[in-house]
Amino acid sequence: MAAKAEVRPRPLKVEAIKSSVDMVEFGKALRDLKLDVLGTDDSPIPITGYYAPCTHPKVSSLFRLRRESLARSSVNSFGSRNKCPVPGMLINTNNMLGFQNLDVASLLREEGKKILHDILCGKIEECPSLLLRFLVISFADLKNWKVYYNIAFPSVFHSKMTLLSLHSASEVLSQEEAASLSKSMKEWCGSNETTVLPFFWVDITSDSSVVVRQLKDWKDRQGGAQKLLFGFYDHGCHQDYPGWALRNYVAFLSLRWKIEKVQFLCYRERLGGVDLEKSLIGEASFAAPHGWDGSDYVPEVIGWEGETPGDGRKEMKLKSINLESLSPESKHSQV
């Protein structure tokens, strides 16, 4: 089960994340929003998605859209890493034609620009989830009780993003380090203050003690730790690839903190604690090229779900939610 030892550098491939929409819950909330609030207004509105680290050795976590995704303010003050809130944007069009005419490529590039902007202006340190921002386009067909939608998870990339090594964490860490890391991560995940923050950094000192810190504490870092790992909640369970969140993280570390060789930790869980067999430690290198810090720079971005970039077919499958079970006719016929 251990990750294969990687000696040769290779392009940084990541495991794409998949969405799971609570069909009726989210669909009904969107329908109600359209009816009661939006009307014909199709300007973008803020939306919340939910992210979680991988919790099973063979099943990757999903990105969740739920009823409360559309709530203006969250009633859930109760933080949990099973539900890390991620900011996103929803564009709900008024008809099928409007939906089909959306320039999906350009919308995605705009999201990529926002990610670069948030990185450069320091917003990421304050709100790390912005690295995971997402986009939903939809058309709520009120008459036919259907909602059509697509989701994008924008991922900025560059051909120079390289993976230098990748190992199971248990192969890299000593027993003492592993024990300290497990303990420190438990505290991180158990604390209301940090549990929903998917990105963090880890200092391992020469006496094997481990400190896990928030991104915003980077400026206060004291030098001298033996190992420095940039950790993140990894949704993926794949042993040969890190999950989707790594790429934007690497871009952040290179652009904002000028770290061109990144030792990263893909944090994955099992039974509520870190799974050091499945968690990965690796090294990625990326020197942000000239221009990335320009305010008008548009990076290359991929991330429409279901689209497989690079194979020449830019084909996005339309997803839909069927709400017919909520229609009065349906209720009537059931009685």
Binding site: K13, V14, Y241
Partner: peptide, 14 residues
């Protein structure tokens, strides 16, 4: 399982 071109790097569940 579509073919993955090296220039894009998304591992769509190999």
């Amino acid at each position: 399982l579509a073919t993955i071109q090296p220039s894009y790097f998304v591992a769509e569940e190999p």
